[in-house]
Design a protein around this nucleic acid. Sequence first.
RNA 1: GCCCGGAUGGGGUAGUGGUUAUCCUCUGGGACUGUGGAUCCCAGGAGCCGGGUUCGAAUCCCGGUCCGGGCCCCA
Length: 414
Amino acid sequence: MKIERPRGTRDFLPGEMEKRREVESRMRKIAESFGYREIATPTFEHLELFTLKSGEGIVDEMYVFADKSGRELALRPELTAPVMRMFVNECSVMPRPLRFYYFANCFRYERPQKGRYREFWQFGVELIGSDSYLADAEVINLAYQILENLGLEFELQVGHVGILRSLLSPLGNDKASKIMRLVDKGDEEGLLDYMDDIGVGQDLKEKVLSIIDLKGDEGVIDEAKELISFDFTHLENLSGILHELGVEFEFNLGIARGLDYYTGVVFECYAEGLGAQKQVCGGGSYELSSLFGGPKAPSTGFAIGFDRVCEVCNVKAKKDVTIAVISLRGFESHAFRIANRIREKGLRVVVDVMGRSLKKQMSFASEIGADYAVIIGPDEIEKGVVTVKNMETQEQKTLSEEEAITTFLSRTKG
RNA sequence: GCCCGGAUGGGGUAGUGGUUAUCCUCUGGGACUGUGGAUCCCAGGAGCCGGGUUCGAAUCCCGGUCCGGGCCCCA
C-alpha cells in the first residue's frame, strides 16, 4: 500500500530545494546586514499561547492535540507569539532594542489552494523594545529591501489600526475586535449589519466606513484628520522617512490584519501571480510582552510568506562545479581515493557505485550535468596521472592529480 | 466551512461496460570491458480507497481520500 503525503503538505525535490535555499540565504543575509540575529522556538507550544490574543481567525485553523499527559498543545500557526514568549522567558534583561529573525515552518488547518498549504514557511523579524516610528521605518524598510532584492513585483500598503481602535474604543474591546475582523475581511455588508445590531450611532458608523475607504498618498492623513481627533504625528514621521528612503507605498487605513495583537502601524505587501493568495508579507507594531507576563515591550515585526515568494520570484540557484570520477573495473578504490582528494578542496565529486561500464559512467556523468570527468584506469595508475575530460568542450588531457585539481579550482573561481 | 473540476506505471497519456489495459517518457541491463548526449534490443512498472449496479466495471452510481481552482480567511 502506498502512503500518500498528508493533505496540504509538499515534498521538495533537489532542484526546488536549491532555489528555496538561495532565496532563504538572501533573506538571511539582508536581515543580518540590519543586525538581526537568528532565533528558533519549538515547533509546538501550549495552546494557550495562541488562544490568548491571536484572535479567533487563527485559533480555528490550528493543529491542536493533547500529549500523553493530557497537555493541550498546538503546532505553531505563526511565530510572533512564540518569539514574544521566548523574549519574556529568556530575554527580558537583554539590551534594547532586540533584533531577531526566524525562518521556520508553520501549520494551519485550512483548505489548501495555490500559495496556501497546511505546512508553510515564514521568514520574519521582530524588533523588540521601541515604540518609535523609527522602529516601524526600519522594519518596513527591511521587508521592502528583501522583496526588492528577490526581484518581486509588489505593492506596499501602510495603515494604522490605532485610528480605528480609538474610534471604536467607546464600544469596548470585544465589539471593537469583532468590527476589526469584519473590516479585515472587507465584508462591508456584515460590518453594517453588525454595527446596526449592536446599535452603533449613525455618526460613528459613517466615520468607520469613511476611514476604511481611505487609500492613497499623504492626502489620506488630512482627510482622516477631518474625521477623527487622533495624533497622526507617528504616521506622518514614518511617511516622511519612508519617502526619503525611496520606499514606495500607499496608505490604506482599512488594513486591520487578521491577528488581534496589532496596536499601531500595520502594513501588507501584495505580489501578482498568486491568485487569491497574493499577500506575501504582513506585519506591524504590537504589544504582547506584558500579556505574556513580561515587562511592557512595544515591538514591530513582519512575516514573509516564504512559499509564496518562492513561487513568484525567478531567483536561480547557483550551480556548483561537479566532477565525476570514472573508473574501470578493478580501479574503484583509486577512484574513491582521488575523489576524496578533490573533495578536500571543497569541490563536489561523484563516483560510480553501480559497478557500471566506463560508457555508462560517462553517460551518467553527462546526465547529472558534470562539468568534468576524471578517468582512472590501468594506464593512468601506471603513469601516476589522471585523464580529465571537459564535458562541455569534450577536450581531454592527461594531467597529474595536482594539475587536475588546479584546473577544477580555476573553474570555480571563474 | 462552502462551491466547481479532476484522479490510469515515477512523469505525461489512450481507452464511454467485454481478450493479456494503449502510446510516449522514465528506470535498469545489453548490443558496446578505455569514452557522454544517437540508434536498436530486452526487462521493470498503473486504473486512489471502500461499497453498490452488472454475467462482467478503469469505464456507471454512492461515500471517503487526495489534487487543482474559486469563496472565505490568511503568510
